[in-house]
Amino acid sequence: MVALAVTIKAWGRELGFADVRITDVDLSQQEAGFEAWLAHGYHGEMDYMAAHGLKRARPAELVPGTIRSISVRMDYLPQDSDAAWRQREKNRLHPNASHSATVSLYARGRDYHKVLRSRLQQLADRIAAEIGPFGYRVFTDSAPVMEVALAQKAGLGWRGKHTLLLNREAGSLFFLGEMLTDIPLPTDAPVTAHCGQCSACIDVCPTKAIIAPYTLDARRCISYLTIELKGSIPLEFRSLIGNRVYGCDDCQLFCPWNKFAQPSTLNDFDVRNGLDNASLVTLFSWTEAQFNEGLQGSPIRRIGHERWLRNIAVGLGNTAAAGVNAVEIIAALQARADDPSALVREHVAWALEQHAV
């Protein structure tokens, strides 16, 4: 088993995973905190978080026979990133750059679900070829599994105050995946936490969604508001969203550990469709067909054209506060003032009101 574990980790690195660790699946210590988080309603409309109850903390109930998790990390910073990438990303949030759309770094390339699942399956195939049939199931943000808790226990990093996993050599710009299995592999030890007294992620959050260290109220999080929320974005948050049209990286950009973020070894996460420097007006002009075609293979596509327009309308409204030349922006908004979607019309009307002040 020791030799097999070493071999599995080597295969994982060959398949593009930056790190591979192994843990048992006892997450009983996570159950009380998870139940309290749900009881406070911090999951918002993410009903799937509560749908499976404590099965999230009990992997063996999800995949009978499970005794181990092979947890993996895959870096997603684009390959051509240099030492100045963080400053460039911070500049995108400056009021003078508000005519440009800001898309979360992880979503500018290929859908990570497909990349990680495919490579985890290849890893499983290699194991089966070595030892014969075995029990397993692979995941990446695709089932009721407490991925961060498993990754932390496996030693891939520690949970930061923003609730994301942090690694001393790689910051937090990576995806997590796991293979739940019945192979009794030796386990790795967790690592110690290194956030100390730092509160950068808490202080910088535009909507104050990190309500306490290690506690996120998703209902306030810009990633939730622009991706998970299906209806209207609450008025109190619209001006705080700025030009962020899909997700938010602020808590990661200002985390000191991300000066160690590692570029991906794969080209899957390189920027597509110019999403690192796209005009709000241009993106707002996309028809549904253009949206579906242009974002094929992108994680953004899952929110649909309607919510895409909703988010961009808010971004266009927020250009008013930045003093951006409004002629083109107002024209773009007015062109969708009678959009078939009531959701889009509502946010366009709000955006036009900002320019009328």
Rank of each mutant, 00 (worst) to 15 (best):
L164E: 12
L165W: 07
L165C: 13
L166H: 15
L166Q: 14
R168G: 07
E169M: 05
L173T: 09
F174W: 03
F174K: 11
F175D: 13
G177M: 04
L180A: 14
L180F: 09
L180C: 01
T181Q: 03
T181Y: 06
D182V: 05
I183P: 00
I183T: 11
I183H: 07
P184Y: 09
T187M: 06
D188L: 04
P190T: 12
P190C: 10
V191Q: 10
T192I: 03
T192H: 06
A193Y: 01
C195H: 00
Q197T: 15
Q197W: 05
C198G: 11
S199Y: 08
S199H: 13
C201S: 10
C205E: 11
P206C: 13
T207Q: 04
T207I: 02
K208W: 00
K208T: 12
K208D: 15
A209N: 04
I211Y: 03
P213L: 09
Y214Q: 14
T215M: 05
T215K: 09
T215N: 07
L216I: 11
D217C: 01
D217S: 07
A218L: 03
R219H: 08
R219D: 00
R220P: 01
R220M: 02
R220E: 06
C221N: 13
C221S: 11
I222T: 13
S223C: 01
Y224E: 04
Y224L: 04
L225T: 00
T226K: 07
T226V: 00
I227C: 03
I227H: 00
I227K: 07
E228G: 02
L229V: 05
L229T: 01
K230L: 04
K230M: 06
G231I: 04
S232V: 10
I233C: 03
P234N: 13
P234Y: 07
L235N: 11
L235A: 15
L235D: 15
L235I: 13
E236V: 00
F237E: 13
R238V: 08
S239M: 03
S239E: 15
S239H: 12
I241R: 01
N243G: 00
N243H: 10
R244C: 08
R244D: 08
R244W: 03
V245F: 06
C248A: 10
D249I: 01
D250V: 02
Q252T: 08
Q252C: 00
Q252D: 09
Q252E: 12
Q252G: 02
F254L: 07
F254K: 04
C255W: 02
C255T: 12
W257M: 02
W257H: 15
N258Q: 10
A261C: 05
P263W: 14
P263I: 14
D268P: 06
F269H: 13
D270H: 00
